[in-house]
């Protein structure tokens, strides 16, 4: 009964979120995010229909849609990166390098696992694969958030909402997959299910209307990165000299 209520509440919120997106034309600004929400809405309906069929049909439907959802989520992360850093090519370059590095680390770890045990991928359960993918997604989000904070990237209310909601959702999913038993309708199962409407409400609150993103890029017409670095180096060197004077005999 409670599961049904959460399910319908989520569907209703997704419909409202999509309607508002079309109404405020935020769909044009964040097309991938709204595609993702449309997909989740469709996924809910398909899963609901599959639930009425056999358990096997539901299981197959669940995992097929779940993995598609993870893939769509990766595109949402890329959209956050694209929109937030459009006016900041320096940070975009840094974030790209960090994301590439993370991707190579993940690929390296998978290759090492395959080298040690060639059948691990066959033996791995769908839950384990999802956990690995969600972890990569979580780490990528973390790297992006750190880059945004380090370079003081200004956010509009809309983008902040998308980032906040999706990070919350991925974090919850990682925690659930790490600590909770995969089967059974216990308290934490309901707590997790109920948190999804909370994420949707967060998105709805932040994306209710279009807010201009305050991207004040102070681009130097000469773009002399060498000069910027030299100035920072000199100033840090001064600070170091000052600290050395404090303890130096």
């Amino acid at each position: 009964m409670l599961s049904q209520a959460i399910w319908w509440a989520s569907i209703a919120l997704e419909v409202v979120l999509l309607s508002r997106g079309f109404w405020t034309r935020l769909v044009r600004q964040y097309p991938v995010f709204y595609c993702y929400i449309s997909f989740v809405l469709l996924q809910d309906l398909v899963r609901y229909l599959a639930h009425g069929q056999s358990e096997r049909v539901y299981e197959i439907t669940y995992w097929a849609t779940e993995f598609l959802g993870v893939a769509m989520g990766c595109f949402v992360v890329l959209e956050i990166y694209r929109v937030a850093l459009a006016a900041f090519p320096g940070t975009a370059r840094m974030a790209r390098t960090v994301l590439l590095f993370l991707f190579l680390v993940a690929l390296g770890a998978a290759a090492a696992n395959t080298w040690n045990d060639s059948e691990w991928l066959i033996r791995a359960t769908a839950l384990q694969v999802e956990f690995s993918l969600r972890t990569i997604q979580g780490v990528s989000l973390l790297a992006l958030v750190i880059s945004f904070l380090f370079y003081s990237i200004p956010f509009g209310r809309n983008l902040r909402g998308i980032l906040l909601g999706y990070t919350l959702f991925v974090t919850e999913r990682i925690l659930i997959l790490t600590f909770l038993p995969p089967q059974g309708h216990h308290f934490w199962f309901y707590a997790y299910s109920a948190s999804y409407p909370v994420v949707l409400s967060l998105w709805l609150a932040h994306l209710w209307s279009y807010k201009v993103c305050p991207q004040t890029s102070n681009r130097d017409p000469e773009d002399d990165y060498g000069r910027i670095v030299a100035t920072t180096r000199r100033r840090l060197q001064n600070a170091r000299g000052s600290l050395r004077k404090a303890v130096g005999p």
Binding site: F88, P89, G90, T91, I153, Y225
Partner: peptide
């Protein structure tokens, strides 16, 4: 703040 807008980072 200066480096984030530079293309040559």
């Amino acid at each position: 703040e200066a480096a984030r807008s530079s293309r040559n980072v």
